[in-house]
Design a protein around this nucleic acid. Structure first.
Length: 474
DNA sequence: GGCGCTT
DNA sequence: AAGCGCCAACGCCCG
DNA sequence: CGGGCG
């Protein structure tokens, strides 16, 4: 096993002079990232460790190497707190020797990994170094989905048991070689986000506590025109995994019939994602509109299986979350490790694997071997950019039949044509609403307000698990 | 996790 | 040198 | 103000 024993990691080597805040390295040109062929071994040397320090820190701590066992056995560090509906053990803090670090040589840059032995996944004992090692080993496959894309950093600074810190803007002080891209939010505000173009960038982010990468669906060169439509399938509570797989197969059919090729992957949590590479010729509004049309079509075909309803109280089955295609929404990228207790990976699949795939088999400790043996089913996604016209035609037909826009997520300004953004059960003007005696009778919706007709196919989504979710409770 | 200011 | 405070998303709609 | 939703 690639270990958290620490020994292999703390390879002594001549110190390398200089800090890591230099800016002399020219930024690699987009697309020509190079990485030394790195054999997988147990020594840690394949990571290009050039320098490290490992000392026992606090008086009450043994050596850093024992950190994992210490963490797992210290019940006094556990508190119960309410998270969702369940009482979940929460770690108050990690007890890791302070000041330890490892310097990695990647892509011609020195990347510092602080606290490499800090346990991020308590159950299997995987550490920050294990995560870095994973990403170095799968760099080629992972980069396909993050390269040139501004990326949100969801930082699990204290491992998966604690809530993450969301960080869009890169820190003020970063290495000179770090690549970034400036995105504009719907409000007009902007943020300079990470653009992870090589292994050094991936590991730099891992050092800050990043476990999964959440890139924009558009590339730095044209951030107003997404080149990826994302189909996010998420089962509502109680829905079997097989329903998700079967829904994915329906998604495949709808995409194919509209001239598009989908690339399925496990979400690493409870769902499946299907990424669709499209020509960057449509804006966010249009991509979301296409995604909404697709979601509604899937629901029409298998109404007992799938739903495109935004409001949870109206969802049944597998939710097709069209809203993940709104500007500023992101989804964990392919080959990202997910913050689940068993360190699942969002792993690309061939369509013929989908009917039988079991997400628990695809983990931080198994996906590198899978890539080496069966290869990467998503490797050619960039060679198959399609047109959105087919789905937009479908959207047009829906609209002609009276289906308007569907609700947008919180934080977004009210959109033109958007229906009332309120939970149906709380809508005063709900058609079937029975007011109490004395209440005014609102009648129907405000006249002239609706361009469309029926409220059918409004979509929504129950969240795709970020973090530690109840279904993973031990 | 990192920085900058204070002991 | 160690300790401490502080910071690290999006920010609207509806009742 | 609380609740919607990822």
């Amino acid at each position: 096993m690639f270990g958290h024993d620490g020994e292999a990691v703390h390879v002594s080597a001549p110190a390398v002079p200089g800090g890591d805040q230099r800016s002399d390295d020219a930024a690699a040109a987009p697309g020509d990232e190079k990485r030394a062929g790195i054999p997988i071994d147990e020594s840690g040397e394949h990571l290009g460790i050039v320098r490290s320090r490992a000392v026992g820190a606090s008086r009450d701590l043994p050596q850093v190497q024992d950190g994992a066992e210490l963490l797992l056995s210290r019940r006094s560090d556990v508190e119960l707190s309410r998270r969702g509906q369940l009482l979940v053990p929460r770690l108050r803090s990690q007890r890791v020797a302070k000041g330890n670090f490892t310097m990695l040589e990647l892509d011609g840059h020195e990347v510092r990994l602080s606290n490499p032995d800090k346990v991020y996944f308590p159950k299997p004992g995987w550490t920050k170094l294990d995560i870095a090692r994973y990403y170095v080993d799968v760099t080629e496959a992972a980069l396909v989905h993050v390269r040139e894309r501004p990326t949100v950093m969801k930082r699990f600074v204290n491992g998966i048991m604690e809530d993450p810190i969301w960080q869009k803007r890169v820190p003020q002080k970063v290495p000179g070689w770090l690549q970034t891209g400036t995105v504009a939010f719907p409000s007009g505000r902007t943020a300079e986000e990470l653009v992870a173009n090589d292994a050094a960038h991936l590991v730099w982010a891992v050092n800050l506590g990043v476990i999964d990468f959440n890139p924009w669906p558009a590339r730095r060169g044209d951030l107003d025109h997404p080149d990826e439509l994302r189909v996010d399938l998420d089962p509502t509570p109680g829905i079997k995994w097989d329903a998700v797989r079967r829904t994915a197969m329906v998604v495949r059919d709808v995409l194919t019939e509209h001239g598009l090729r989908g690339y399925p992957k496990t979400s690493g949590s409870k769902g499946i994602h299907v990424n669709v590479r499209v020509e960057p010729s449509w804006d966010f509004l249009e991509v979301r509109r296409a995604a909404l049309a697709l979601a509604r079509e899937v629901e029409r075909r298998v109404p007992k299986l799938a739903t495109a309803e935004w409001w949870k109280e109206k969802r049944h089955g597998v939710f097709v979350d069209y809203n993940q295609n709104a500007r500023d929404r992101t989804v964990a990228s392919c080959y990202s490790v997910r913050p689940t207790p068993d360190a699942r990976v969002s792993c690309a699949l061939d369509w013929d694997e989908v009917p039988d795939v079991e997400p628990e088999d695809l983990r931080l400790d198994t996906v590198r071997d899978r890539l080496a043996t069966v290869g990467d089913p998503a490797a050619d996604i960039d060679e198959h950019a399609g047109s959105l016209e087919g789905l937009l035609d479908l959207a047009r037909r829906d609209e002609e039949e009276g289906l308007g826009d569907a609700p947008w997520p919180p934080h977004f300004p009210k959109q033109k044509g958007e229906p009332k953004r309120v939970q149906p059960s709380r809508d005063r003007d709900r058609p079937t609403h029975r007011g109490r005696a004395g209440d005014p009778q609102p009648g129907g919706p405000p006249p002239g307000t609706r361009t469309g007709g029926l409220q059918r196919g409004f979509g929504s989504k129950p969240r795709t698990g970020q973090g530690y979710e109840d279904e993973f409770e031990d």
